[in-house]
Computed example of a mutant assay.
Amino acid sequence: MNQYFLLRKSLAEGGLDFLFKTPFDEDVESLIYYGKVDENDYISWRPVEKKEIYDFSSLEEKLGIRMHVSVIEYFNSYWFADLDGFITDHYIKLESVQQTTDIESYFNLLVGYKHNHDNKLEHIPIGIEGNGLIVVVDNQNGLVKLEDFERKSFEVISEGIKQLIVTLRLQK
């Protein structure tokens, strides 16, 4: 993820400063925010390596699953507002990890996903694609896929979360 954030920073310094701007949310602790809120209610942010680790064991117990280790590593790496980009022709936006985004809100997302998938969590949602497809991680092998819920189909887009992140392009 560090490589991704360095690329994002380089592009931001080259004139694409919106890459480190996010809508200001007064409920988010200011650890990732810096500077002042602008006239459009946006504020600058920076990724911060996490020192506080989420314990997923109670969430896994409630859901009756073991989550793929890559999902747990993703949520325990950095605090950040945005992680997005392009892979092939798809715009991907992954879940942000902010201090107020706690494990319970992610649990609620997983419960809803499980409910819509015959009470199974064979895949773990981690983001959204620009046309409404769901970015999921195969809970058995860690492959990252795009899920078309209506067609009940999956397209593999990466060997794993790490590979996806280093492959993302920030410009089309």
Rank of each mutant, 00 (worst) to 15 (best):
S70D: 12
S158I: 06
I65Q: 14
F149R: 08
G85N: 12
E61P: 04
I161C: 04
D17P: 10
S44I: 00
I157T: 09
K93P: 00
E73Y: 09
Y78T: 01
E49D: 13
E129K: 03
D84S: 09
L170V: 11
D41S: 06
Y33G: 15
I161F: 02
I126R: 06
L170F: 15
L83G: 02
E147L: 05
N116I: 08
I87C: 05
N131W: 03
S105K: 13
I165A: 09
N108K: 11
H90M: 06
T101L: 14
D17M: 15
D89I: 00
E61A: 09
Y113D: 00
Y74Q: 09
R46D: 02
I126M: 07
Y42Q: 06
F5E: 01
H90K: 07
D25N: 11
K162F: 13
E147S: 03
D17T: 15
S105I: 11
K51C: 09
L109F: 07
Q163H: 13
K21F: 01
Q140T: 08
H68F: 13
R151E: 03
L146D: 03
F75G: 04
D55C: 02
E13A: 13
G142Q: 12
G85E: 04
M1Q: 05
N141L: 14
K172F: 10
N40R: 08
I92P: 07
D138T: 13
G132T: 15
S44Y: 06
T100Q: 07
H115F: 15
N116W: 12
L19H: 10
E104N: 13
